[in-house]
Design a binder for these strands. Structure first.
Lengths: 346, 346
DNA sequence: TAAAAAAATGCAATCGATTACAGGTAAATA
DNA sequence: TATTTACCTGTAATCGATTGCATTTTTTTA
């Protein structure tokens, strides 16, 4: 009944060859108008649908793209994927999702299975800081299929990337805190082997220096991005003889943890301690005490990444000069760091 | 240099045929131990990787599964996809993401392109209430490839689904509000052509009836799931001569809008008006005034959906009896509806 | 009307892997 | 030693679509 219809079925019905059918369906100019119309009508009538798998095997193009992220259930990554999907769908591509859960082996494994599945490209946010030392990864590079980093990138020759200017973001956030009158600004960092965290840290440091504030190593704590870690680090900071009067966190989740800890210890926000987070997760805006945060425009980031990918596949393999797209971050100033405003009110 | 290695390359090198290579690699018992080892070693040495596309064409199994959701950048759907991906990846499947943006045509188009791509199954949350009347959709059913609904389902013969018990959820939420002493409970509903919204509404209504409260049509407003609509509807409710003392919203976003509107009009939450949302979005928990909400266990929902899919593909086409898995929702009682507690405090 | 040019279609190989069936070799049995 | 049996491996078709080259059909030109 619903046996799959192929071009051979159409050919048989019309007493012509599959070659002709194929050409007619693909608007090959060598086919007569009469045949073309006849074939197309018959195809519609028989409910023919092209088998993309067969086409992919023949042409070497699967029209599938792999996207590898640490996890999909974070607003940031989900938004990037949304951007990628929307941009690529319009060009006939499908997006295959892979999650690493920040597991380095999983990342390598994902790359391998995606390559086996013959994807036309891989867009990823790396989970593995030393990925360029990996054999599988180098095979990927050697294959000349487009590879793109977004957000968490590594500087690797020939690999394009779309990121936000993390240095600028760190600088902006810190400068803002300084402008609000803060003098001892702590920084909740993360693994600085990742460029994103290193750059946020460097921007933070530079802003301090540029504005005549002392940089104090003890005010920088390296943690994971979680509420728990944010609490813990804040506890540690508050225990110092000279506690900070502001916290710039490289994650909204640790910023939230910091706020919870500050509140539980009765520290007034923003009067006694300001907080700025990172990523502009939805909740930062909705809190009663809304959290200042850096917006990275993830949907746009995804779209840009998709566009660079499209350029690369369309221009063939001669994309030797990598493209580094850097978006400008935006600081959303909210309650958690509006110190001057709060002080003036009192 | 990195030309693709096929079984023919291995065959040539060893002076045997591709058939033997294929059998050796697949551990076919008819192959001698010696050859098997030799082939495997050579394959590793030559860095051979199986072309899944060719295998898929031959076997008719692509090991790709399509997932269609309204949008991916919502915590709820992203979590479901996370669950699906984790469960299916372990079995060698890849997940292809499609977004409909609640556009009915997009949904049909997605089904078609996924079928053309020869996916082994489709898991979806429907955007289209009258989908069963669509020709493409019926072609999908006729193809006998596993189809599964999650969350937004339709009762269609032969189609399995994984959902949460929305009736129970609506009932629980409403009962809770009644227990808190609320007498006039409003309901922010949504398009009740969708079962999920209809069931939440019915649960709400039944709870009222069972507890001797009058059901008032005017207290039920049908809106979209957004902050704006939540505000608007709440404004409307507060304008009534006899405004409600509780709002049960079928979405966290409209619940948030409701809260914002209540606050801006100086209505005390939960003392003068309680609010319960739906979906347990992360922000509901983090708000200063945390929002009570219904948890639907989306990751679990995704995993269950994946499992049902696996059962169906593995059992061949004889999955005539559909499976309807219904998860039990959980009500998280938080500040926004803890009326008795708040009243006792004063 | 015959020959040349142009247009349309067919033939067969290809993409890479799998598998029913046939064929060959070595070991076991008579 | 001749023959059966078991064990391996090879041949060739297949999945569905595409395409260079050959061939046939139609049209144009002499």
């Amino acid at each position: 009944m619903s046996a799959k219809i192929t071009i051979y079925d159409i050919a048989k019905k019309l007493n012509i060859t599959a070659a002709t059918v194929s050409r007619a369906l693909n608007n090959n100019p060598k086919i007569s108008e009469k045949t073309r119309i006849l074939v197309n009508e018959t195809a519609t009538k028989m409910n023919y649908k092209q088998n993309k798998l067969a086409q992919a095997l023949k042409s070497g193009k699967s029209y599938n793209v792999g996207v590898i992220v640490p996890r999909i259930d974070s607003n940031f990554f989900a938004s990037i994927i949304r951007g990628i999907e929307e941009e690529l769908y319009a060009q006939g591509y499908h997006v295959i999702i892979c999650q690493t859960n920040n597991n380095e082996n999983m990342e390598i494994e994902n790359i391998n299975t995606l390559l086996n599945a013959q994807v036309d490209g891989i867009l990823m946010s790396i989970s593995n800081v030393s990925i360029q030392k990996n054999a599988s990864f180098n095979r990927l590079l050697a294959k000349k299929i487009p590879l793109l980093f977004f957000d968490r990138k590594k500087n690797i020759e020939g690999v394009s990337s779309v990121t936000v200017n993390d240095f600028e973001a760190g600088y902006k956030a810190t400068k803002h805190l300084i402008d609000e009158g803060c003098k001892r600004i702590a920084h909740l960092s993360n693994d600085r082997l990742f460029d994103i965290f290193k750059d946020r840290f460097l921007g933070y440091k530079q802003a301090l220096i540029d504005n005549g504030l002392e940089f104090d190593d003890n005010l920088v704590i390296e943690i994971k991005s979680s509420i728990e870690d944010g609490k813990m680090a804040t506890k540690q900071l508050l225990n110092m003889k000279n506690p900070p009067d502001a916290i710039f966190s490289s994650s909204d989740w640790s910023a939230l943890g910091a706020i919870q800890e500050l509140k539980s210890q009765g520290v007034k926000i923003p009067e006694e301690c300001c907080v700025v987070g990172f990523s502009n997760e939805p909740f930062t805006e909705f809190m009663e005490l809304s959290i200042s945060s850096i917006e990275q425009f993830p949907v746009e980031m995804g779209k840009q990444a998709a566009k660079v990918f499209l350029e690369q596949v369309n221009n063939g393999a001669d994309f030797t000069t990598e493209k580094k797209i850097v978006l400008t971050p935006k600081l959303h100033i909210r309650d958690s760091s509006s110190r001057r405003l709060a002080l003036n009110k009192n």
